[in-house]
Amino acid sequence: MIETITKPRIQSIDLLKGLVMVIMALDHVRDYFHYSAFFFDATDPEQTTWPIYFTRFITHFCAPAFSFLAGTSAFMIGKRKSPAELSSFLFKRGLWLVFVEIIIINFAWKFDIHFSHIGLQTIWSLGISMIVLAGLIHLPKKAVLAFSLVIIFGHNLLDNIHFDGSYVWAMLHERQKFEFAEDHTVVFAYSLLPWIAVMSLGYCFGSLYDSSFDAQKRKRLLNSLGLGSLALFFILIAFNTYGDPVQWTNYSDTSKTLMSIFNVSKYPPSLFYLLVTLGCSLLFLANAEKLKGKVVNFFCVFGRVPFFYYILHLYLIHLLAVFAAYFTGFGWQAMVLPTFITRVEALKGYGFNLITVYLVWIVVILLLYPLCKKFDNYKQSHKEKWWLSYL
């Protein structure tokens, strides 16, 4: 996660980051508190309801927006550094994020000191993407843009290629689980190839936020690209042949059909998934630059300290779930997890309704806000401290 440049004219970037970080917490609260999460996929048209479906679907926007904006922020940091300095920063920051994912984040998810199950997810993909971007920045901008677009539009051609047992292929394009020691597994949840392209695409868009770039031209361009992405999504949906490894189903029920159409694949992120999420993100960026007020400032706080917030929110949500399990008769030990929480058979029957999930989510955000605000103020007043750029 990249340090943010806090000029008023790009507050929309902090705002979008903050919004997606807050929305992301909703999905994680749902994992730890929703009764139905242990029984069916929230986006399965044959089992879900619209409130449950929407609660999951809205969080699809988080990872693509943040990965894209991490690339944009990298470009802006590069305005103050030489290419060699930026490359060094991205490489070291990437290694740090990989370490954090494996140790700090995985413990937050499971509270398991034995690390029986290691999931390589968002922070891992951001870290590796930064390491790759550290090399890509030395190429011409057009080459980086071409690289990004070819992967985003073409990686679904690889969907039918399988190499069972291949760590490399799992890292690049196919979600797989491996046993690397007795009773110890690792899951490559965020396959890297498309995520690397999303970050490098965001890097290319960073030039739109150069001080010399006309704001109205930026708005028109972002609106055009956002609308174009959504239009292309619906065109490809009509053909239903390429863009997602799972074709949508035409049910006799229109409601279920709509759910199927928008049930885009995240692991790895398909072309459909990226067209919808990045298209909407571009539209937001195009039209949010002049937004001001207390609500905007509230979300911008989270957007300026996203890494700090990310770590805290996982520990807080899991800690609250420990108390919830204890007071509902499951015992606090049930929240020391051998695998991802919704796959723990012993927890079937635990959980609450969706209203409770939303209430817990609001409590989490309100508890974290003052801590994030204080840390944000500290970062802004101590920019000379190099280590803050890693938090």
Rank of each mutant, 00 (worst) to 15 (best):
F239P: 00
S200F: 05
R220D: 09
T257A: 08
Q216G: 13
S207H: 07
D214H: 12
S200W: 01
G226M: 09
S255N: 12
L201K: 07
I235S: 04
T254H: 02
K256Y: 04
P245R: 13
Q216S: 14
N250T: 11
D210L: 07
L208F: 15
I237R: 03
L221I: 13
L201Y: 10
S200M: 10
F205R: 04
G228W: 02
F213Y: 15
K219G: 09
S207R: 14
L208I: 07
W248E: 01
S200D: 01
L230Y: 04
D244N: 13
F233I: 07
R220G: 00
T257D: 04
S229R: 01
Q247C: 03
L222W: 08
D244C: 04
G226P: 05
Q216N: 15
S224T: 14
L232Q: 03
C204Q: 04
L208R: 01
R218S: 07
F213N: 10
A215N: 10
F233K: 06
Q247T: 12
D210G: 10
T241G: 09
S207Q: 11
D253G: 06
I237D: 00
A215K: 13
D244F: 03
F239Q: 11
K256A: 10
L201G: 07
D253V: 06
W248R: 02
L236F: 14
G206R: 04
Y203I: 10
L227A: 01
L201N: 08
S229P: 01
A231W: 01
S255L: 10
N223F: 00
S252T: 13
G243R: 02
A231S: 13
Q216M: 03
Y251Q: 08
D210I: 08
I235K: 03
